[in-house]
Design a protein around this nucleic acid. Structure first.
Length: 477
RNA sequence: UCCUUCUUAGCUCAGCUGGUUAGAGCACAUGACUGUUAAUCAUGGGGUCCCUGGUUCGAGCCCAGGAGAGGGAGCCA
């Protein structure tokens, strides 16, 4: 007899059919009631065993965490709390779980503790929900771009390109690091290394993505990226997944339209397909916020916040307008900002972004046209000579979730800017070739996937939305 | 990397002004009960008080250094 997944069983009308279920025991109450979970849904299936006829040695092995197979009759539940249950005729222990040593208990654990046992935290309600939503969002990303006719391109993980300046890179080498070969000057001789040169893990697939966009028109990458920054925050990982679309013949506004449409599409997909999990996470968040003082609690529940994002256009303002709003704000005048806004040209701090999103506009905000000094070399220079065609999307509670721009397609302008900043042209000659041969206006953006998952699940630490987080001083599993 | 708070049983935490044998709830074990919903009741076992050094007659508590974690900041996605 084949196994039926619990998600499907719970939707079935009981007609006394005999079924077999397999899963892991969450709790075993009263020597009779097994709460069984197989990860297909957050809801458990109640399996009722008759302890008067079930052998004692089987009953003793039905412990929290054990894998079991149960065969029995699906009936309408005789107790409250569930609609159907399985009246077991036989229970088989597939894998024992020593109750004394199994770390998960049928009670609340701290997220910090569960992070230490990340290999087992999938078996909790919270992480079950989080990773089902994560899966759903990843699928929705591919679905969205596929429906739009975008080509999914795999940009390299190991790269010799280090000119992007997005952050510290992880070095990749095959050398015995205690004794690397040296050249005549005593420097490490990378000519003898595996790739014959010094290489790193990628910090972004954007530059390679641009190359592909200059042939396929509309492409995206969705893969892991790596930053060796020693940043210890709830929003940063050393290894994270990034979605980077790149579109030929797109200008800044097209870029913003696409990013907004995509975010709304994937959020809607999660609401349509993972409502139970999101309801659970929404409730979880409410419980958690009850511990906070009234003024720190969010006004909207998680579900309402997600729906709000679907029903409202994102606010679009230029950097210059944003500076004006911040400078004129009571917050600034009363010197409540740690960094006061005084002049045009300063970079916005998290507190300013949060003020714009959470206090002033109270919705997602797209900030555009930043001063060129605080943005990357490849961003297209505006006619005012001061700003570039950049756009950042700021989300409540998350901050920057998307960073993008229209790219500089004019060869001379790009070369001049690279010279100003001190990026050797020869290092990126392959990149500049796209501007030499059939250049065209194009644009793209990067979306931190984990930050998206943070927003949709309402979790507050990025380490809790990726299965096995890599952060400074931590690379377990 | 900086600021700040924390680290006591498997988990969540209490531990007074530095004073004898370090506590509770949950979990676990044993027994009772048997339509439970984190079942309930009784009994029991369980400790490198993060590490190293110092002060003191005496340190879980005070001091110095280190490690790890949380929150905030910077950098960013």
């Amino acid at each position: 007899m084949s196994r039926i997944r619990i998600k499907d069983i719970l939707k079935t009308t009981p007609t006394n059919q005999t079924i077999t279920v397999k899963g892991w025991v969450r709790t075993f109450r009263n020597n009779s009631f097994i709460a069984l979970n197989d990860g297909s849904t957050n809801n458990n299936l109640q399996v009722v065993v008759d302890f008067t006829t079930t052998p004692e040695e089987i009953l003793k092995r039905i412990t929290t965490g054990a894998a079991i197979s149960a065969t029995g009759i699906l009936i309408a539940s005789q107790g409250k709390g569930q609609t159907v249950e399985v009246k077991a005729t036989s229970v088989e222990i597939i894998g024992d779980s020593d109750a004394e040593k199994y770390p998960l208990q049928p009670k609340k654990h701290s997220l910090e503790f569960l992070r230490e046992i990340a290999h087992l935290r999938f078996r909790t309600n919270t992480f079950g929900a989080v990773f089902r939503v994560r899966n759903s969002l990843a699928f929705a990303v591919h679905k969205f771009f596929n429906e739009k006719g975008f080509l999914y391109i795999h940009t390299p993980i190991i790269t010799s390109s280090d000119a992007e300046g997005a952050g510290e890179m992880f070095h990749v080498t095959n050398f015995d690091i205690a004794n690397p070969p040296k050249d005549e000057n005593g420097a490490i001789d990378y000519k003898q290394d595996f790739f014959g040169k010094s290489v790193n893990l990628t910090v972004s697939g954007q530059l390679e993505g641009e190359l592909a966009a200059m042939a396929f028109s509309d492409i995206y990458t969705f893969g892991p990226t790596f930053r060796a920054e020693n940043s210890n925050t709830a929003r940063h990982l050393a290894e994270f997944w990034m979605i980077e679309p790149e579109m030929a013949f797109y200008e800044l506004k097209d870029n913003m339209d696409l990013a907004e449409e995509m975010l709304q599409y994937v959020i809607k997909h999660a609401l349509d397909n993972n409502l139970e999990d999101l309801e659970f996470l929404s409730q979880r968040l409410e419980e958690e916020e009850k511990q906070k003082p009234q003024n720190e609690r969010s006004e909207l529940s998680l579900l309402d916040k997600l729906k709000f994002c679907l029903e409202n256009k994102f606010e679009r303002v230029t950097y210059t307008q944003a500076i004006e709003i911040l400078r004129e704000s009571n917050h600034n005048k009363k010197k409540k900002f740690q960094y006061l806004i005084d002049k045009w040209g300063v970079d916005l701090q998290s507190e300013h972004e949060r003020y714009l999103v959470e206090k002033h506009f109270r919705k997602p905000v797209i900030l555009t046209d930043y001063p060129k000094e605080i943005k990357s070399f490849y961003m297209r220079q505006n006619d005012d000579g001061k700003t570039v065609a950049a756009m950042d999307i700021l989300f409540p509670g998350i901050g920057e979730i998307v960073g993008g721009s229209q790219r500089e397609e004019r060869l001379e302008k790009l070369e001049t800017r690279m010279n100003e900043i001190g990026i050797p042209l020869e290092d990126l000659s392959w990149y500049l070739d796209t501007r030499r041969f059939g250049t065209c206006p194009h644009a793209g953006f990067g979306l931190g996937f984990e930050r998206l998952v943070l927003f949709v699940t309402g979790m507050t630490n990025i380490r809790d939305v990726i299965p096995f987080p890599r952060t400074p001083k931590n690379c377990e599993f």
